[in-house]
Design a protein around this nucleic acid. Structure first.
Length: 704
DNA sequence: CGAATTGAGTTTTTT
DNA sequence: ACTCAATTCG
């Protein structure tokens, strides 16, 4: 693609943002304003026009999936191969840097990455050891996470006294935790960022290598960076010719992970002369959808004002349905989805159901299954979170790094090999006494013969096995997994589906080396899983960020759910809830329908729900407002006056399953019934003929 | 040591 | 309601 072609199809603002290379640039890109297009074109432009090679453009995205898409799009413009390009998430990029440079910080380059569950396990272990109430582990993990996101090391925390909400016990755990990670040669997610910043701060010559190498720095989803990531960007572009950050403060929804919308404002201060360009033309949604979502988000204070507009048509009205309970809500949605499907314009793959919390998927799944609507859950329990997969991953980690205590604890008796709590306790004590890893401690116990013959044999067997397995790190990951399963006897007596999962896992490793494969599975997340072509996508509002669907349902618009009850106290968190809702609405291209339920099971009790406060910010003139109460009658939504008109909720007169006769095709079974009044249509399956869609008005159907 | 039962705790969002 | 963990029993 030529340079001129890169400019074609860009609007004036996008074009300006692409051409601006004289200094730092911030693009405030509203939802659906062609942000990815801008970034990919800019990347290609830098390469074509300014001869910046892909290895000199540092590009961060929010998910691996976004990175892959970006890579794909860019490589379609450029003939260069992107083998050596730097396009990835913060975590992946930092991992790549640290694999090379981490020796400077006293870790070895073969470090393993601990995911959240590894982190939990380690913290629980430490809490137990320090005799602190163990159930606090989640809270402790999140506190430590936010300290790391703010670049507060254990030493800082201890010496700062009261500075960061000091807590003596927390300090103790944090120090011990970080110590233990280092001893295991392990990094948690936050370490990947924090340690890279530390590396650059403490070793200016290393920083110089990178900051000179990267002539341009591009940051996507800038509103979701935390302090550590912000600092990293600042360090990396200290010698660069240009830095472009792209983001939308209205879509900042990761506060709980340390994301600071403030960074958008801070950037202006830190980079004087910053050029700010707003992208306000929306290419995604109809005018109605855009109007509704803008009205909701405009209620937030402290935002960069944007006037989104579109030249699309008004489109269908935004729907809101209030239903008696959770089951009715799910049932209503399934019916509505099917109705849309049967109209033939949209396939199931064009539809998404979004909810605030994963828990909400259950009722929806039941209803969808009942209606035989294909669906897939995006997010939820990831493949990599399954027990058998985590076990195999632990073995893989151990082959690279036998001092990984967390993985050793996990696998020491899996599959059962007669090493129980008593033995493990002894090992733990010895290792603590000698200050060595569990693995070393086991070896010492064996060497000293300081145990019973039986224990010795078992431990010795374990050591021999692990040493034998350490040879697999030179293999391809798939061979390594096979070897692990063979040597450990992991699959013996395992359920068939779990064995299948392991087989699938093996296939997914492709031709990767063990190290590459581990990096990939550690940094990949469920968000990166591909969507199915022809099934309805179910996911949380968070997961939906960055995606778009022609048809979007947002469920559970109730006080306590959206906004979520934990956020009700705090004004900032309420603003974030509103943004979460906004992100959901702006995913919709053509049809947006929202629902809520009067009664819902919360904490296992049936609760009366109030409609979400956000609904009162929705202008009624672009809305269809329907409330269905238990008895099936309808009434106008009571909370606010408006011109929303209630529409009759017609129940199908031909119920699914009833039998009909057609003059030509004979007897068939009604599979579905939709539409109202004269437009009422039915779907009938005639044995031997197939599925037929018939308008009741014309087809001469006879009920039998 | 391992399986099974009881019991407690937990329900946001995820790189 | 449900999951996950500790405890108890075999």
């Amino acid at each position: 693609m030529g340079i001129d072609e890169l400019l074609i199809g860009l609007n004036p603002q996008q074009r300006e943002a692409l051409l601006y290379t004289d200094g730092p640039l911030m693009v405030l890109a509203g939802a659906g304003s062609g942000k990815t297009k801008l970034i990919t074109h800019k990347y290609a432009y830098l390469n074509r026009k300014h001869k910046v090679s892909p290895s000199s453009i540092f590009t961060v995205t929010f998910t691996n999936k976004a990175a892959n898409e970006m890579r794909g799009r860019i490589s379609s413009f450029l003939s260069n191969d992107l083998q050596n390009c730097w396009i990835g998430t913060f975590h992946a990029q930092c991992n790549r840097i640290l694999r090379k440079e981490i020796k400077a910080l006293g870790y070895s380059p073969g470090f393993v990455i601990y995911d959240q569950y590894d982190q939990y396990n380690l913290i629980r272990h430490i809490l137990k050891e320090l005799k602190i109430y163990e159930a606090l582990y989640k809270g402790v993990a999140s506190r430590i996470g936010s300290l790391k996101a703010s670049l507060v090391t254990p030493e800082d925390f201890v010496s700062a006294g009261d500075g960061f909400g000091f807590d003596e016990k927390l300090a103790k755990v944090y120090v011990r935790y970080q110590d233990e990670l280092k001893r295991c040669n392990a990094l948690d997610f936050d370490d990947l960022i924090m340690l890279t910043v530390r590396l650059f701060r403490e070793f200016p010559d290393i920083l110089r290598n990178y900051s000179r190498k990267f002539r341009h720095v591009l940051v996507d989803e800038f509103q979701d960076t935390n302090l550590a990531q912000y600092e990293l960007v600042k360090l990396l572009c200290s010698d660069s010719e240009g830095v472009s950050v792209v983001g939308d403060d209205d879509q900042s929804i990761y506060r709980f992970r340390g994301a600071e919308v403030k960074n958008i404002f801070k950037f202006e201060k830190d980079f004087p002369g910053l050029k700010i360009i707003k992208l306000e033309q929306n290419y995604r949604s109809t005018r109605n959808i855009l109007h509704v979502s803008s009205s909701v988000i405009s209620r937030n204070s402290l935002r960069k004002e944007k006037q989104l507009w579109t030249d699309k048509s008004e489109g269908e009205k935004v729907h809101f349905h209030w239903l008696p309970d959770e089951e009715d809500e799910a049932k209503y949605i399934s019916k509505a989805l099917k109705e849309i499907y049967l109209k033939g314009v949209f396939g199931y793959g064009d539809m998404a159901i979004l909810y605030r919390i994963n828990l909400q998927s259950r009722a929806l799944e039941d209803a969808l299954r009942r209606e035989r609507i294909p669906y897939s859950i995006i997010g939820g329990m990831s493949f990599y979170e399954r027990r058998e997969i985590k076990d195999i991953i632990s073995y893989l980690k151990l082959t690279l790094n036998p001092h990984d205590n967390v993985s050793l604890r996990r696998t020491i008796n899996t599959p059962p090999r007669g090493i129980g709590a008593a033995t493990l306790n002894k090992i733990e004590q010895e290792s603590k006494k000698d200050g060595v890893s569990l693995f070393d401690s086991i070896k010492r116990i064996c060497r000293a013969r300081s145990s019973s013959q039986m224990v010795f044999e078992r431990l010795n067997g374990l050591v021999e096995m692990l040493e034998r397995l350490s040879g697999v790190k030179k293999m391809k990951a798939s061979e390594a997994i096979k070897m692990i399963v063979d040597v450990t006897g992991y699959a013996d007596g395992l359920e068939e589906d779990r064995i299948q999962n392991i087989a699938e896992f093996m296939v997914s490793s492709k031709a990767d080396s063990v190290g590459d494969f581990l990096d990939r599975v550690s940094l990949y997340t469920r968000m990166d899983e591909a969507h199915s072509e022809d099934s309805v996508s179910l996911m949380t509002l968070h997961t939906a960020k960055g995606l778009e669907f022609p048809v979007v349902f947002i469920v559970g618009l109730e006080e306590g759910l959206l906004p979520y009850f934990k956020s009700l106290e705090n004004e900032d968190e309420l603003c974030e809830e509103r943004r979460i809702f906004y992100v959901g609405m702006t995913r919709a291209k053509d049809i947006l329908c929202m629902t809520g339920a009067q009664k819902r099971r919360v904490f296992s009790k049936l609760q009366d729900q109030e409609p979400s406060r956000f609904l009162s910010d929705i202008p009624r003139d672009c809305c269809q407002w329907i409330e269905k109460v238990r008895c099936g009658s309808l009434r106008e939504f009571p909370r606010k006056k408006g011109n929303g008109r209630a529409v009759a909720y017609a129940l199908p007169s031909y119920k699914t399953g009833c039998r009909v006769r057609h003059p030509k095709w004979g007897v068939g079974v009604v599979r579905d019934c939709y539409g109202e009044g004269d437009d009422m249509k039915v779907c009938v399956n005639f044995p031997g003929v197939g599925m037929k869609r018939l308008a009741l008005k014309f087809a001469q159907l006879e009920r039998i």
